[in-house]
Design a binder for these strands. Structure first.
Lengths: 150, 150
DNA sequence: CTCGATTTAGTCGCGCACAACTTAATCGAG
DNA sequence: CTCGATTAAGTTGTGCGCGACTAAATCGAG
């Protein structure tokens, strides 16, 4: 198969980086699914937990900034995490507009069960450390460029 | 920032290729949105149209194979494309289980308006041809690996 | 030829994802 | 101090995306 560059006007599906991206993202998330089912988390919920395991607490706004998600996506998701007993939500005293999200006991404990997940995914992806680093670099560059004048 | 490789058990969001992938995919699709709004298409609908512009006709099964989507995703999407007057759907005479999707006049004509889209996106992504090719290669490798034992 | 297995679309339920909007709290120029 | 502008979170509506399931048509071993 002869690929064309990003610069021509090809309308062929297989020429498009964006489709490779879209397909790869869904494939990786599908790979996560059985692992996250064990933790009773969806993939976006897992991402929220990653942020909280890292920094204990965050506002909805901060979670949105870290994950590039709107409050309209996060609010219901956080409600489900709270219903699942993994987080607490409370209005901040010093700024009643903000809501602090914190880990519950169960949420903090879940971290240990999650430890095995990145390993298993890394193995399934099957890239060399160099390929992994290159891919991350290019994806971040791409994201920054695309968001630049968005 | 010091990145770790895919092989360790880091639970840091920024270390994870999968998050870079997820964020990049959504950013690119968001970039498409205003362009596709002009065509009154969503991104997945646009992908279906790409396949049809390429080969005139396809069954639901073939579209699913090309785009890696389930019939439970495609059936309602195709219903919307039909309601929008871009495609026709008809049971295949030789195998009543299959449904043939074909372009309508309007669907075929939309191709010309879509010509400018890949150019604009390619420009927004801002990768060199080499980077674009590398990214596509790595994403396909990744997807193949992840799906292999799925 | 027959009938259980397979294949193809489709429906349903749930959880994102995002645009558009609302509500409430805070900010800040005058 | 005040009040219009801004900010934070949440609601609503639409369209994916997929698992679980169903219905109907076809296949194929015996």
């Amino acid at each position: 198969m002869v690929d064309r560059t990003a610069d021509d006007g090809s309308l062929l599906l297989q020429d498009q980086l964006c489709f490779a991206l879209y397909a790869a993202s869904r494939s990786v998330i599908a790979r996560y699914r059985p692992l996250l089912d064990e933790l009773e988390l969806t993939y976006p919920q897992y991402l929220v937990m990653l942020v909280l395991w890292e920094q204990q607490t965050a506002s909805v706004r901060e979670l949105g900034a870290a994950l590039q998600l709107e409050s309209s996506t996060l609010s219901p998701l956080l409600k489900r995490l709270e219903a699942g007993g993994l987080i607490h939500r409370q209005r901040r005293a010093d700024d009643e507009r903000s809501v602090s999200i914190t880990l519950s006991e169960a949420g903090a404990e879940l971290r240990e069960k999650a430890r095995a997940v990145p390993l298993a995914i890394g193995e399934a992806m099957g890239l060399t450390p160099e390929q992994d680093a290159t891919a991350k670099h290019l994806l971040r560059l791409l994201t920054a460029n695309v968001n630049r004048t968005a």
